[in-house]
Design a protein around this nucleic acid. Structure first.
Length: 418
RNA sequence: GUGGCCAUGGUGAAGCGGUUAACACAUACGACUGUGACUCGUACAUGCGAGGGUUCAAAUCCCUCUGGCCACCCCA
């Protein structure tokens, strides 16, 4: 094996790219309908951006980032997620001065140094959307509805929406205290990982998959019972709006986020189909993030979805595009006629293929079949001089005489349902 | 970072110590002298992830490395 790609970095081959385009185009359509505009930010940022936003103690920052020192001795990092960079740009360009309410979406590669696995790679792609400047639960509901609409648009009903509220800097500390004191009693029953989590991030013990831990934490206090008045009202209103729009969801009070900046509403689109990579999209509110990054005190909410994971859920569909017409030729002079015809058809937006190598008619017809052309036509001496030819519908072999003109061919293609 | 499983051509694979690495699909050309799909024929791994070792003999046994998959961790 000569040269291979870097571990966890994948090529998206032509057989896959049709599916990717479909996902990306659907996202653009749904997001733009909701008033979101694309923002394109760099793949590389100063390391500090991520340690300050995602959180120093998170696994992502602690051990999963591609961090390097560049030739100017600056510590730089390949973005492990999208929100931080988008908010950096929002602050840097003072987008809030024009309008504190910004609705932004982005798509592109993210990088995390993890052990590759099904639905998880070191370079992976996310499509995300963010709304800044709105505290009202209306924004939460619109984001959730938009995410739901996206999955409906691409034809997936499988991932289901789970929501939770993590509270705010007011009420979360109190919850942590009460959860810790509950867990202290159960220490003996917890797994090693959970004992470690107890210190670092006690909320994490709640979604441990070890049966013993699940049992031990069964009666644990719920975040939702410890929300302060404001957070409680906020969450209740989010739910009311979701009900108003008949958006299906379930509440999962054990759902936890891996990034530190989340507050209040958090959510995931989860599926059973991808093994342990059950989260296809996830996000939440981050009311303190912009200020934390040195911007004004503007709230935000958003999500990101994993393109690879969505693509994995779509594998049964065929997204290949097919030529409208394949032109086969007999003889050198006729190739000029065929080429001119192809050129004219392409200029009119008709997808045409023809033989490139002067192969036998049989080879050309085989190629027409392989490319799944809707029609084929043979241009030889007779056709070149008469200016008309028999167009063969490949599906059933039916042939129709038509003039070798763009107009006549357009009519022919349009009268047949493709 | 931890653990389990696996590595034969473009693909799916047979082979389980002994001359030319089965079969199928895919691909190329042809039988069909102006027409695809069906049928038939021919071609297509000096090579069995890489490197060592055992043996008269290794794709087949042993070791190391590399890679892949899956699970844990974590996460989109």
């Amino acid at each position: 094996m000569a040269l291979t790609a870097v571990k966890g970095f994948n090529d998206i081959l032509p057989v896959e790219s049709g599916r990717w385009h479909f996902i990306e185009q659907t996202a653009r359509k749904v997001f733009e309908l909701n008033g979101f505009e694309e923002i394109r930010v760099p793949v590389l940022e100063k390391t500090e951006l991520f340690s300050r936003s995602i959180g120093d103690a998170t696994d992502i920052v602690e051990k999963e980032m591609y961090t390097f020192t560049d030739k100017g001795e600056n510590s730089i990092t390949l973005r492990p997620e999208g929100t931080a960079g988008v908010m950096r740009a929002f602050i840097e360009h003072k987008l809030y001065a024009q309008d504190p309410i910004a609705k932004l979406y982005y798509m592109g590669p993210m990088f995390r140094y993890e052990r590759p696995q099904k639905g998880r790679y070191r370079q992976f792609h996310q499509i995300g959307a963010e709304i800044t400047g709105v505290t009202d639960p209306l924004a939460d509901a619109q984001v959730l509805n938009m995410l739901t609409a996206f999955f409906r648009e691409i034809g997936l009903t499988e991932p289901t929406l789970q929501i939770n509220s993590l509270g705010c800097p007011e009420c979360r500390p109190e919850y942590r205290v009460s959860l810790r004191s509950f867990l202290e009693e159960k220490m003996g029953q917890l797994c090693d990982d959970c004992r470690r989590r107890f210190a670092a991030n006690p909320l994490r013990t709640l979604d441990c998959k070890v049966p013993g831990c699940a049992e031990a934490t069964a009666g644990a206090p719920s975040v939702l019972d410890h929300l302060c008045g404001g957070c409680n009202d906020h969450f209740a209103t989010v739910r009311r709006y979701l009900d108003l729009s008949a958006t299906p969801y379930s509440i999962n009070s054990r759902m936890v986020r891996g990034l530190d900046y989340y507050t209040r509403t958090t959510f995931e689109m989860v599926t059973m189909l991808l093994g342990s990579q059950s989260a296809v999209a996830a996000g939440g509110r981050y009311d303190g993030l912009i200020a934390q990054l040195g911007g004004p005190a503007i709230p935000g909410i958003g999500f990101a979805m994993g393109l690879e994971r969505v693509a994995l859920l779509l594998t049964n569909q065929d997204f290949a595009s097919r030529p409208d017409l394949f032109i086969a030729t007999m003889g050198e002079g006729e190739r000029d006629v065929a080429f001119s015809l192809m050129d004219a058809l392409l200029k009119s937006g008709i997808r045409v293929e023809m033989d490139y190598e002067g192969k036998s008619l049989k080879s050309q017809m085989r190629r027409a079949d392989k490319l799944k052309a809707y029609y084929s036509v043979v241009i030889g001496g007779n056709e070149a001089s008469s200016g008309k030819a028999a167009f063969k519908r490949m599906a059933d072999g039916f042939q129709t005489e038509a003039l070798l003109t763009v107009a006549a061919i357009q009519v022919l293609l349009n009268t047949t349902e493709q």
